[in-house]
């Protein structure tokens, strides 16, 4: 793994230089894997059984677990958002766990996490205006119109804090693992890194994915209700 994000390939579109960085390449790899897995699941489930067993059982359990988590936090009102958050959840989870395979995690690049956070930011304000209309805009002028700049700064701090949280966690784990592999002698690299990987990649990655999704859901519910 590399600490810096290196540029793999550069080409020009209409005079603007476009860089294909390691982050973009790894994101495409993960997306390819997820799409292939989804198609595989769809083909396997063509032979749909009324009483699930084996593979179908595992898939249904995973979907039901996510459904329960989603409805607990947001209720029936925003049901179409479930598919969006399931996509975000699987993509972030696969990105965070890709460090286990020796890839540079795409979420260790601020651009990726900021893209996720800015989409949450857009959803909050779009849904807030859609469901509460005028009173949502009025919320910015409370308790007094003087507080408008403070409220706006508070809103703008949200995507920054949401993205820095995940970015910092994944990046720090990646830096520590890279330092461990580059500093220690060969005979220490057998069993000990496994424990470090369990903490920095598995535990931290899953926890940050969960926290990102649940914070997005809480903020969206706060804007809608």
């Amino acid at each position: 793994m590399d600490l810096n994000i290196d540029n793999l390939w550069a080409f020009e579109i209409f005079g603007i230089e476009v860089w294909i960085t390691r982050t973009i390449f790894n994101t495409w790899l993960i997306m390819l894997f997820l799409i292939a897995f989804a198609i595989f699941v769809r083909i396997r489930l063509c032979k749909f059984k009324e009483i699930p067993s084996g593979f179908q059982n595992a898939i249904e359990a995973a979907i039901e677990m996510f459904d329960r988590f989603f409805y607990q936090n947001i209720g029936d009102k925003l049901e179409p958002l479930g598919t969006w958050f399931f996509t975000v959840f699987t993509l972030i989870l696969a990105s965070n766990l890709s460090g286990l395979l020796g890839l540079r995690p795409p979420t260790a690049d601020w651009a990726t996490t900021f893209a996720f956070a800015i989409s949450t930011f857009g959803l909050i304000h779009f849904l807030g205006i859609k469901y509460k209309k005028g009173s949502y805009i009025k919320g910015f002028f409370e308790p007094h119109p003087v507080f408008l700049p403070l409220n706006l700064i508070g809103e703008l701090a949200l995507p920054v804090s949401l993205s820095f949280r995940m970015f910092g966690n994944v990046l720090s784990g990646m830096i520590l693992m890279t330092l461990f592999y580059s500093i220690t002698p060969v005979f220490v690299r057998f069993v000990i890194p496994a424990f470090l990987h369990v903490y920095f990649d598995l535990f931290s990655g899953i926890l940050q994915t969960y926290v990102f999704c649940i914070l997005s859901l809480i903020f969206i519910r706060g804007a809608v209700d």
Partner: peptide, 24 residues
């Protein structure tokens, strides 16, 4: 508790990011 821990961790992450920016 895990949610609270992650929220508390944010300020620590900010410090870490500042030091990473200063170093790299």
């Amino acid at each position: 508790m895990f949610l609270g821990l992650a929220m508390v961790e944010t300020s620590g992450i900010y410090g870490l990011l500042i030091s990473i920016i200063l170093l790299f």
